[in-house]
């Protein structure tokens, strides 16, 4: 067999072998690889390259490859079962900033210079070490930081604002095709969709994309961009109606001379107030 044919055959066999191997060892993103994973990958690739180019005897090469592969699988299995082995191979995460103070000895242990630390923090948009309350170096060498509570971004919870639970919107029309499965997961059907589209005066053929949110509001995008479809306003309308009715009842209460009716109106205003308070977060 000529040399070039041998190289082709070996290459193809090795590619197939490595594909199978990478599937078995498990999926890990390159950026999430620990030092051990990288060494393992490097050894395998060098061995594979050497075997392909006939730098070492093919049989020996294959034996080495298979040994490494089996060892890799075995070790990854063991490290999954035992925490000790996992820490031994992949290292342990280290706290590098605690209560806003940098732990110099931990940095030393990890062979991490202050510049490295600052650079890692900057890549997380933290330019001021004073803002960091707590930071951990993961076994991958990446640093994750928790900001001081007064530096954290404001969330609705901080403001004491209640928000409506958001479940994902379902795409019910895509590229002009009605998605029956998405409709049925929302408990809706084609009839409902046709009615909603009729309501906003749009023909189903003209819809490029339509989404229904958790409250049944329909958002549409049309093929014809010259047409402006109305945005869903039903929720806002409900809130406005309630507010309006509340104001009306207040007026009635002021206008009437009948003491009993006055009381009744006032009570209704109070009820409406509590209703508005209750549903407002859902209608925002």
């Amino acid at each position: 067999m000529p040399e070039w044919l041998q190289i082709i055959i070996r290459s193809v066999v090795l590619i197939a072998f490595l594909i199978v191997l990478t599937r078995v060892v498990g999926r890990k993103i390159a950026a999430r690889m620990t030092f051990f994973d990288i060494i393992f990958a490097m050894v395998l690739s060098v061995l594979a390259a050497a075997v392909t180019l006939n730098l070492i005897h093919a049989a020996y090469g294959f034996i080495a490859l298979i040994t490494w592969a089996l060892a890799g699988i075995g070790i990854s299995f063991l490290s999954m079962k035992s925490k000790m082995i996992h820490e031994l191979l992949h290292g342990k995460e280290a706290v590098v900033i605690k209560h806003g103070k940098i732990m110099e000895d931990q940095l030393m242990k990890m062979r991490f210079t202050p510049e490295d630390l600052l650079q890692q923090l900057r890549s997380k948009q933290i330019f001021n070490v004073a803002d960091v309350e707590f930071a951990v170096m993961e076994s991958t060498g990446e640093i994750n930081a928790l900001l001081k509570s007064n530096q954290q971004p404001i969330t609705p919870k901080h403001l004491g604002v209640e928000t409506a639970p958001q479940t994902g919107a379902q795409t019910v029309i895509m590229d002009g095709n009605i998605m029956d499965e998405a409709l049925s997961t929302m408990g809706l059907n084609r009839g409902w969709l046709r009615t909603e589209l009729d309501k906003i005066g749009v023909s189903p053929e003209n819809v490029f994309l339509a989404q229904v949110d958790a409250m049944g509001d329909l958002y549409v995008d049309l093929f014809d961009d010259a047409i402006q479809p109305p945005q869903p306003t039903a929720r806002q309308l409900l809130l406005t109606t309630l507010e309006q009715a509340k104001a009306d009842l207040k007026t009635f209460s002021l206008e009437t001379d009948n003491q009993k009716a006055k009381q009744m109106y006032d009570q209704c205003v109070k009820e409406l107030e509590s209703i508005v308070y209750d549903v407002r977060p859902l209608l925002k």
Binding site: A164, T167, A214, M215, R235, L238, T241, Q244, A245, L282
Partner: peptide, 22 residues
């Protein structure tokens, strides 16, 4: 009449809303 309309809308939302709490 306005409030009756609002109640009807609320009932509809009570039926189609996906979230149990809502």
């Amino acid at each position: 009449a306005c409030l009756e309309g609002a109640k009807a809308t609320m009932d509809v939302y009570g039926e189609i809303s996906q979230d149990e709490q809502a």
